[in-house]
Amino acid sequence: MNHLPQTIQVQINGQVKTLMVRQAELFLDTLRNAGLTGAKPGCKNGDCGSCTILVDHIPIQACQLFSMEVMDKNIMTIEGLIDQTVQKAFEEKWALQCGYCTPGYILNAYALLQHHPNADEETMKQWLDSNICRCTGYQEIIDAVTLLIDRNEYHEHHS
């Protein structure tokens, strides 16, 4: 083996894709080059959460993943989140201004509700603290996710 680009197979938003990647390439760049620009670069250092995607249903920062690592994994990006419940709650509570942090927040919140549909305040904040938003002051984001928990949105469908 040498350091030439490699082919990887990965399931993204339900579709199996075959992609050529540099071995040093990070998955955030791979996704964005493939036209999936919903994951945003905010720091590319694992600090801001704006590139959050779901890897096998778990939120992961795409900038902290080698593309070679996702071989055969199941990836979901904001483009693949067909269920609109979280998005609608963010709309309802105005949980965004510039919108740059939003895709990462929505996927993180979605994963939170999948894993902890009745998350208590502490758990919710622990999860949501992974993302940085510079515009909103965070209250509306908390409100949106609290709304989903209070409405039991994910409990009935998924557990």
Partner: peptide, 16 residues
Amino acid sequence: LAEKAQGKVRYTDDTN
């Protein structure tokens, strides 16, 4: 709101 919540909005660097 809707466009942004969907992650459909294109910022400057979202065009390749």
